[in-house]
């Protein structure tokens, strides 16, 4: 235990602190996911519209958000807005904004892909039955798109959870930051603490994401039946 540096974990409230850090990471990612999914669905539907101007704007948004590293986005929103706009955002809010912007962009592209994979005739027969556009999307197109979307969007959710590890760069005390603090505080008594703590962080991320992956596989299978 000493050699692996796991002893540090059980000193004082260290493990609880780590869980608290994980809670912060999960809170940021889950709020962002909860916002990104509906917004992404909306933008994805808009991206399939014929309006070229609208499509160009959404495309630009998607590509910008995708090309820019998330860390640059975090710096831009956290530090940039303070200087340029005088906003005093706290780190968690800035993180939620960044992850929502990014998640919405990625989600909208997944939705667009799922929608255009639905045969044109499905739209036409829905229209021919007198369904309004909104009813057509709600009852015919989206339920089919969702079945195609679920595995892809769950993959996105796990990516978002993992990428929250970057928010420590703007001073948010999440699980990795807590681990670093514990390692620093125990540098003298447990020089191997780094291994044990990062191993624990790894396991915590695994425990958070693996069930989601399992769920994706299960849902995919049940939709196919």
């Amino acid at each position: 235990m000493q050699a692996l540096g796991l002893d540090v974990l059980f000193k004082g409230k260290n493990f609880l602190r780590l869980l608290g850090g994980l809670g912060v990471a999960l809170k940021i990612s889950l709020i962002s996911v909860a916002l990104s999914i509906p917004l992404g669905i909306l933008l994805g539907i808009l991206m399939t519209r014929k309006n070229r101007v609208l499509r160009a704007i959404l495309r630009l948004y998607l590509e910008t958000l995708r090309i820019m590293p998330q860390m640059v986005l975090l710096f831009l929103v956290f530090f940039g807005t303070t200087r340029a706009l005088g906003w005093d955002l706290d780190g968690e809010t800035a993180s939620v904004i960044v992850f929502t912007l990014w998640g919405t962009a990625e989600m909208s592209d997944l939705v667009r892909g799922a929608l255009i994979s639905i045969p044109k005739h499905q739209f036409e027969s829905a229209e021919a039955l007198g369904l309004t556009k909104a009813q057509m999307h709600l009852y015919i197109i989206l339920p089919q798109a969702v079945r195609r979307l679920v595995p892809l969007s769950i993959n996105l959710i796990t990516r978002m959870i993992k990428t929250t590890s970057l928010v420590l760069m703007i001073g948010v005390v999440e699980v990795i930051k807590v681990a670093q603090q514990i390692i620093e505080a125990n540098r003298m008594v447990s020089p191997n603490g780094a291994f044990g703590m990062y191993l624990t962080v790894f396991l915590l991320y695994f425990i958070s994401c693996f069930p989601i992956s399992l769920l994706a596989g299960k849902l995919e299978k049940s939709f196919r039946e």
Binding site: H121, Q122, E124, S125, E127, A128, G130, L131
Partner: peptide
């Protein structure tokens, strides 16, 4: 949508909702 209710259409490829 209201007028289309009065027009029934069946297509070559059935197009049931899967």
């Amino acid at each position: 949508p209201r007028i289309r209710q009065k027009i029934g259409m069946v297509f070559q490829s059935y197009d049931l909702f899967p």
